[in-house]
Design a protein around this nucleic acid. Structure first.
Lengths: 152, 152
DNA sequence: CTTATTGCAAATGCTTTGCAAGCAA
DNA sequence: TTGCTTGCAAAGCATTTGCAATAAG
């Protein structure tokens, strides 16, 4: 698990190297996203950030997120419909198993799949930068699943 | 591999069951998408469909695709930026390798990964319903990549 | 001081929708 | 004939951008 301070350092390093500036807005947005600890939409993020900086607007949040994505500390996800979701990149190599009933998310990492991926990509003449692997299914333990579901 | 006629039957069945109508537009759009035999954007699809039906417009293409997705014969995908892409559902199990520079998309299917996925999911007490596996990278053949990129 | 950043509003891009005319059943 | 579909244009969202004011280095 990555520390918030490590992300802040990565960001500051990038800012310095590119003649960009450290601002309260960027700091609050990153910290807010960290605290959320899951994927979150622009609307949710803006609302939370406004608790710290009342005047902050959509444009700043969008621009900051694009910056964070470029720096590699935030990932952008477009699930089905609606707004794009953002989340802190905790670890490059974990993937997700999601129960579509209760929404339970399990993180997994498999070396065999990782290796195989690399082989396949090379075979097709591509060098891997990142990947996303999501498995959707249903909990076999129905009772526990229903319980988690109603807890929402 | 699914036959076009099988998709047409599935569609007609759905139309009949729901009191909907078989139209030239729907037929041309489905056939065009079949012929394209890959992911395609609305713009590309519209352009191709207009060769058959000059007056056809965006709204009809969008509406038809939504219908096909509901019926389950077409899949909707939102890769990085820009327009949603559509493709005929040939088979549940293929995945994608995407060049983030030129946007080139390669389909792959790997039995080893498929099997491993199943093992992992069972290990975590989940029964797989579907999955999504996307690998992002860069073409090793830079020249060809730049060419594809500028062709956009 | 200089220049990047912000906040606002306007603009853009993709997708959806309302409506009158057209077409399938 | 009935009412689903179409094509057009207008509307609706999500995201981006231009610009003057502001703040960081």
């Amino acid at each position: 698990m990555v520390e918030l301070s490590a992300l802040q350092l990565t960001l500051q390093d990038h800012l310095k190297k590119n003649g960009l500036k450290k601002t309260r807005q960027r700091d609050v947005i990153l910290t807010t996203l960290w605290d959320a600890d899951k994927h979150i939409t622009i609307d949710e993020l803006l609302e939370l950030a406004q608790e710290q900086i009342p005047g902050i607007g959509y444009a700043t949040v969008y621009r900051s997120l694009k910056l964070f994505v470029r720096v590699g500390i935030v990932a952008e996800r477009r699930f089905g419909e609606g707004q794009t979701q953002y989340e802190i990149v905790h670890d490059e190599h974990h993937d997700h198993i999601i129960c579509t009933e209760c929404g339970h998310i399990i993180e997994f990492e498999d070396e065999l799949i990782e290796r195989r991926q690399n082989e396949i990509a090379i075979q097709y003449g591509i060098e891997i930068l990142s990947h996303r692997h999501e498995i959707f299914g249903r909990c076999l333990d129905i009772a526990k699943c229903e319980q988690l579901k109603s807890a929402k």
